[in-house]
Amino acid sequence: MNDTGTVEPRPPQALDPRPVGSVLELQAVSRWYGNVVAVNDVSMQIGPGITGLLGPNGAGKSTLLSMMAGLLPPSAGTVTIDGHPVRGDVSAYRNIGLVPVQEQLYDYLTGTQFVRLNADLQRVPDPRAATERAVALVEMIDAADRRISTYSKGMRQRIKVASALVHDPQVLLLDEPFNGMDPIRRRQMMDMLTRLAREGRTIVFSSHILEEVEQIARQVEVVVSGRHAASGDFAQIRRMMTDRPNQYLVRSSDNRRLATLLLADTSVRGVRLRGQQALEVETDDLGRFGHVLPRAAREHDIRILEVTPTDDSLESVFAYLVGA
């Protein structure tokens, strides 16, 4: 970790046992619209394996992915894949597969027709075989000849992935791929991405849900308010998030006495009485606090009526990381 609170990017070979694969690199990338800065001086190097782009809504994840996909030119900085600029040369798309968040596809086409369209647009040598292979890869053979308009959300997502993989790209970019998926489909999608990563592909997906990223991404890039807030493997990011001070609202049968008992413990940084109704407790050690509170209540015959985290939103976690 460097002195700005971020973790230096892991070298690509450390991410995956197979050194073969593409490296996506952003160097001092910024993007602004008039006076509004959407992405501010972001640098990162992403190698083979799964990388999660984590951040709250409006953090700039889609803008970053758009620049990675060559859709949007950076206002400053460069985006390259294996040293070649993504922007300005449409042949770069032969090596990129994109799965946008938008659910709307060409609904009047069948799944097969849609994947075949992508194969034709990519001018793959044998588009028919490539289509069949991609459809099989996402386990959509049975529904492939149905119109997309009849597909469920999960099926749409899978056919989108098939269309992005039909030309066998080394880099796969997915914008919020698990949005609205039920747990079973989400698990299937995660397994599929893990499988693809094992084949040596560089996979980047955006999400605002910590648990999604935790489940499959080994490398995490956290973006908040357009800034690169943190970078590293998931364990490091998780530690930064859980080590932050947590605030709770506690209501009990004897708030004043409970306040005294809690302050005596090292896990509690501060306690404030909110009138006679409740306590505001700030703790540095969430795990220990979880044991101290019920024990103190039990031993001193205090009834706990309510324990509510007051800053547990992902936004507050991200805000903490930005300040870290």
Binding site: G70, L71, P100, Q104, Y106, L117, L121, R123, S163
Partner: peptide
């Protein structure tokens, strides 16, 4: 509806 992205991300 954003479906044009499927054309824009092709060579």
């Amino acid at each position: 509806d954003g479906s044009i992205l499927y054309l824009l991300t092709k060579p």
